[in-house]
Every structure is written in structure tokens, then in C-alpha cells.
Computed example of a mutant assay.
Amino acid sequence: MAMATSACQALLVLMAAFAAAALVSTASATLQYDFYSSTCPKAEEAVRYATTKIISDDPTMGAAIVRLFFHDCFVRGCDASILLDQSNSNPQPEKLAIPLRGFSAVDTIKAAVEAVCPGVVSCADILAYAARDSTMVSGGFSFPMPGGRRDGAVSNLNDIFGSLPAPNMQVQALVQSFANKGLSAVDLVALSGAHSFGVTHCSFVTPRLYPAVDPTLNATYAAALQQACPQGGAGGTVLNNNNVTDPNKLSNQDYRNVAAGEVLFTSDQTLTSDATTNQMAQDNAANPVAWMARFAGAMVKMGGIQVLTGNQGEIRRVCGATNGGT
């Protein structure tokens, strides 16, 4: 059994590598695998070690880091704009718009890389590598992630509106939102699997509970959600979709929950309302290795959205501020 598992994992890596190589050539020909092999050969090792320790100390951080990567890439492209703090040049940065976690974790990873080779590795690449390694720690599989991204100097919360897919979106709007970023319906469904781990606020769930329960929700599950998120309550958080097994484990459990009507977001449940995306969700539920390969390919493809490369942007000394510091 152990040998069979290892063989599957090896096959997965090969599949993911092939898919990622094909995707990166079309998404962003300027990104390269082993980008820092000569300028900072221990960069990815430093990211992996720091990320592994962070998640070992706090297992909830795996989901937080992957979510940061998603938010970064969908708004202004993968340029680490989500990491910028409020400043004179960025008075209303993206991070003010949505409650996110993981900023201090990225700062810790950046410091670990700076200790190895200062001023070489961008925060955008560090976030991409950390998201890849969060997948490894929390999901048990890994894949190659190209590098070469540069850091942007602008972060504006107004850029979020119209860029990020919302949890209340229906499937047609979701497909269009992903298509606007060069991602396919296959990528959409594959990346939806990330909702298998992490937590969410009641405010994202209560619209499905009040004033009337969304009929696509399993009745028993809806009653449990109403207990956790009472109408007019203070908010709080709800364990996300993988509480069947482990809320901190990235897996294909989300697709099983979709089929059972036991997911928190409309954006997940709506996958069943379209024959094509419903079949994709069923395929991902039935074949975890195939889902892993699709997820890996989609992560790499997403990591190529509107990247800054070459002499564009900068390599920030710290991730929360531009080198100009204004």
C-alpha cells in the first residue's frame, strides 16, 4: 500500500509538472522554474522551511496563506499588492477592504529569505512559493512553481471591486470572473477545492440562512449553521467545509460536501447548477489524484496573472512597504 501511495504521488508530481510547464508558457512566458538557482539557490528551501514551521505551529495558517495568494493574483495581478500597508502613496490599500490573515507569516518568511540573500527575492515570489508549500504541508502534495515576479508599488482597495469573485456569485458570473483573468472553468472548479480548509465569518453565511434558508442547503446542515450564526448575532467564525475530517486539511472533501448540499458559500453550491461544472465537481470528488493535478496546474496558471517581470516594479526590502517608504 505504501509503495502504491508513493507511486501515485510520483505520478501526481509528473502530471502537475507537465501541466504547470504547459500553462506557464501560455500564461507568462517570462516566469521561469528555478528562477533563483544562481542568484539565491537556497531561496525556495528557505521559504519551504519557514512555511512548514509556521503551519506546524498554527495549522490554520495554511489556508490563510493560500487565500492571500489568491487575493493577490486576482487584484492587479501577482505583484504582492495585497501585502502593502497603509501609507501616503497607498492611503487605502487592499488589505483594508477584506479581513485576511497571514501577513505576519509572510513577513516571517521574507525575513528568512532575506537572511540567506538580501534584496534578491520578491515578496510576490515569496507569496507564490509559500502558497505552493502550504499546499504541500496542508494537502500532502507538491508541484513546481515558477519565479521571476517583481513587486508592485500600488495597492488600492477600490481595485478589489469587480476583480474578486464573490461568495454569493452564481456559476455563470464565476466562470466569467475567472475568464477575465485568463483562467478556465476547469481552473475555477479545481481552485474551489481550497474551500476544504480554513474558516469564514458568519457575515458570509447568514445571507443563505435569513430571512429564509437557501433551499439548496441540506436542512440539518442549515440548522447547525443557524446555531453557529444566529440572526442578529455578533458574527464570529464558522469552521469551513472540511469539518468532516479536518478543517485544516486541504483535500477534495469540498466536492463531496457540494454534492450533499453542505457547503457554506453559494459560489460552491452553484457548481451543481451547471451540467459542465457539476460533472467537473463530481470528477474531482471521485478522483483525488486527478484533482490534485488540476489544482496544481491552476495554482501555477493563476500565479502568472498580470505579473511584473524584468525591470518592472521592484524587489521590496520588506513586504509591507515599498522601498521608497512613502
Rank of each mutant, 00 (worst) to 15 (best):
residue 4 A to P: 03
residue 281 A to Y: 03
residue 249 K to M: 14
residue 197 F to W: 10
residue 273 S to R: 06
residue 79 D to F: 14
residue 232 G to L: 10
residue 205 V to A: 04
residue 222 A to R: 08
residue 152 G to I: 10
residue 205 V to F: 08
residue 205 V to K: 04
residue 178 F to N: 03
residue 326 T to D: 11
residue 50 A to N: 00
residue 54 I to E: 01
residue 198 G to T: 00
residue 75 V to R: 00
residue 63 A to V: 07
residue 295 F to T: 01
residue 54 I to W: 00
residue 83 L to Y: 04
residue 41 P to R: 04
residue 308 L to W: 13
residue 186 V to A: 15
residue 149 R to C: 07
residue 221 Y to C: 09
residue 10 A to Q: 10
residue 264 L to A: 00
residue 100 L to R: 09
residue 265 F to H: 07
residue 320 G to C: 07
residue 122 S to Q: 11
residue 116 V to D: 14
residue 153 A to F: 15
residue 1 M to Y: 09
residue 238 V to A: 06
residue 68 L to V: 13
residue 281 A to Q: 00
residue 227 Q to H: 04
residue 316 R to H: 15
residue 209 L to Q: 07
residue 228 A to D: 03
residue 150 R to H: 13
residue 286 A to R: 12
residue 226 Q to T: 08
residue 17 A to T: 14
residue 154 V to I: 14
residue 174 L to N: 06
residue 13 V to K: 03
residue 202 C to R: 05
residue 305 I to M: 08
residue 210 Y to E: 04
residue 195 H to G: 13
residue 275 A to T: 07
residue 245 T to K: 09
residue 68 L to N: 01
residue 241 N to F: 05
residue 188 L to R: 04
residue 3 M to Y: 05
residue 226 Q to Y: 06
residue 221 Y to H: 15
residue 30 T to F: 12
residue 31 L to M: 11
residue 60 T to I: 08
residue 274 D to K: 11
residue 287 N to K: 11
residue 324 G to Q: 09
residue 265 F to D: 01
residue 311 N to K: 14
residue 49 Y to G: 01
residue 102 G to D: 05
residue 140 G to C: 13
residue 115 A to N: 15
residue 124 A to E: 08
residue 105 A to D: 05
residue 189 V to A: 05
residue 240 N to T: 03
residue 291 W to P: 03
residue 184 S to M: 14
residue 222 A to W: 04
residue 12 L to H: 11
residue 194 A to L: 12
residue 81 S to N: 15
residue 138 S to G: 11
residue 182 G to T: 04
residue 243 N to M: 14
residue 230 P to L: 10
residue 282 Q to H: 11
residue 278 N to G: 09
residue 219 A to V: 11
residue 216 T to I: 05
residue 257 N to K: 14
residue 219 A to R: 15
residue 136 M to D: 08
residue 187 D to T: 05
residue 203 S to C: 10
residue 168 N to A: 13
